[in-house]
């Protein structure tokens, strides 16, 4: 196995090879051990500066990236669009080039527009990590999801994973589909027809509109949040109706004749896509996902930083 990533930026799972994912996981194993030490910090990236540019709200991802960067001893600067000159009309490239002229080596960016990271990687001289670009990709989330499945079930290959909910607006869904397929897992999606992209089957993903059938088929169910903030029209009649058809509750979970693993990328709308008792149950690995997120992001940052020449 190569000890180097095949890419200089982490823009999407689409651009990765299977070996890249394996390398990131292997490196994350080491960092997971590091973050469970009494002192959870290594000095590797002490000469690297990373800018976190968040043009869209985030709690988990932003904290997770910042923690990962700090645990690697990188210098970190944070930026959020709400309090910046973006509001004054500055373009993306100008904003980023201004930041880079302060000698920044790597940019972690979340942006509402799909492809923003790819665009940036072509125009600026820094290593770019996509922390979510619109409804396009969220590669580190998909990596940590697969890593959590690997940790729980031994391997990802051959596992059956159903992604439930708002697939249409979800970058997590798309990145997960790419990542899981690359590792040899089977993927189905489940949700109201209105929230499934029209050409989703062209990705080799089966559609199942009955939640019970989907759960009976799967080893892992990844329950996505309904992204009300991205919905400009009404995609289903009411939240109550959505919950009735696509919400996962304890009764449904217990009526299955097997144990399945429940995942959620957060933030949870308790009582909508999953009920509280499911979210807090033994089957759920939601908090493991969060812990693994730091290790996965440390691995991705470390491996990309090692490609930045002095």
């Amino acid at each position: 196995m190569s000890s180097e990533l095949s890419v200089n930026h982490l823009l999407g799972i689409k651009y990765l090879k299977r070996e890249d994912i394996e390398l990131i996981f292997k490196t994350a194993d080491h960092f997971k051990e590091v973050i469970n030490r009494p002192i959870k910090k290594v000095p590797s990236l002490r000469d690297i500066t990373i800018a976190n540019l968040f043009f869209e709200n985030s709690t988990r991802t932003r904290l997770s990236f910042e923690l990962a960067e700090k645990r690697l001893s990188a210098d970190v600067i944070n930026f959020s669009a709400a309090s910046s000159s973006v509001k004054k009309g500055e373009t993306l490239i100008d904003t980023v080039n201004n930041i880079l002229s302060m000698k920044v080596d790597m940019v972690v960016m979340r942006h509402p527009n799909p492809g923003a990271g790819i665009f940036l990687s072509k125009h600026v001289n820094a290593s770019i990590i996509n922390a979510g670009d619109g409804a396009h990709e969220h590669p580190t989330q998909a990596l940590l999801d697969s890593y959590s499945i690997r940790e729980k079930l031994g391997e990802v290959k051959g596992k059956k994973v159903v992604i439930v909910g708002d697939i249409l607006h979800s970058r997590v869904a798309l990145s997960n589909i790419f990542a899981l397929q690359l590792q040899g897992a089977e993927v189905k999606v489940c949700g109201p027809k209105t929230l499934l992209p029209k050409y989703i089957e062209s990705l080799g993903v089966e559609v199942e509109t009955n939640l019970r059938k989907a759960l009976e088929w799967c080893d892992v169910a990844n329950m996505l949040r309904v992204q009300n903030e991205r919905m400009d029209i009404s995609y289903f009649p009411s939240t109550r109706e959505y919950v009735k058809q696509f919400g996962l509750n304890k009764k449904l979970l217990e009526s299955l004749d097997k144990e399945i693993v429940i995942m959620h990328p957060g933030p949870i709308n308790r009582g909508v896509e999953i009920t509280s008792d499911v979210a807090d149950s033994e089957n759920a690995i939601i908090l493991d996902q969060v812990q693994n997120g730091v290790a996965i992001r440390m691995a991705a940052i470390y491996l990309l930083a090692s490609k930045i020449k002095q």
């Binding site: 180097e4 080491h30 000469d47 002095q310």
Partner: peptide, 22 residues
């Protein structure tokens, strides 16, 4: 004890450093 992440030649060699188990 693995010392990879503590080495002083990170980004200075031809090949990336590969970690081992601690």
């Amino acid at each position: 004890l693995d010392i990879t992440f503590y080495r002083d030649d990170f980004r200075r060699g031809e090949k990336p450093l590969e970690a081992n188990k601690t």
